[in-house]
Amino acid sequence: MFESLLFAMLAGIAIGCALGVVFHRNPVHCALLLVGVLLSVAGIFILLHAQFVAALQVIVYAGAIMVLFLFVVMLLNIKGETPLLTPGAAKAFGFLFALIVFVELIWTAVEPAPEGQGMPQALPLPSDFGSPAALGRVLYTVWLYPFEITSILLLVAVIGAVVLAKRKFF
């Protein structure tokens, strides 16, 4: 009961803030509302026994990525656009395609599975589920090579960002 209440509250905050991100005029407010979404999703992660991922979400997303966003917003001094939305037929098509995507996603979520192929009942969790130790054990054994490749990706991203920021293009 308590869990359902908490879920409903966090989901409501997340959806409200997400709508704010998309429809607010001031980019700074959009960024701060996005922090609201990220924090409430982190709360939902904790409801799902994913404590470490929730901590990562707060540190990496709400901490690092959003600070980067706010820096760029203030660096560029972007005013709210006028008009807010893209004009003409593109807007109508945008909403139409979004509606199609939404119906499709909801349908895949709620359609009844064929006989004998449904999702099994939630399995009982091991005691250390979601802890850094359990995640590290899987990450450094089964997923070792993807993990190492990620480090190369981040290195390339850092070099690319420096190069892009330094030189003059166009």
Binding site: A14, I15, V22, V72, E81, F95, F97, V101, L105, I106
Partner: peptide
């Protein structure tokens, strides 16, 4: 699904790259 759709709307109808 709801959060994803809101993101799709944002990409399709907003004009600011940020």
């Amino acid at each position: 699904a709801i959060l994803f759709t809101i993101g799709v709307v944002g990409v399709l109808v907003r004009r600011s790259a940020l």
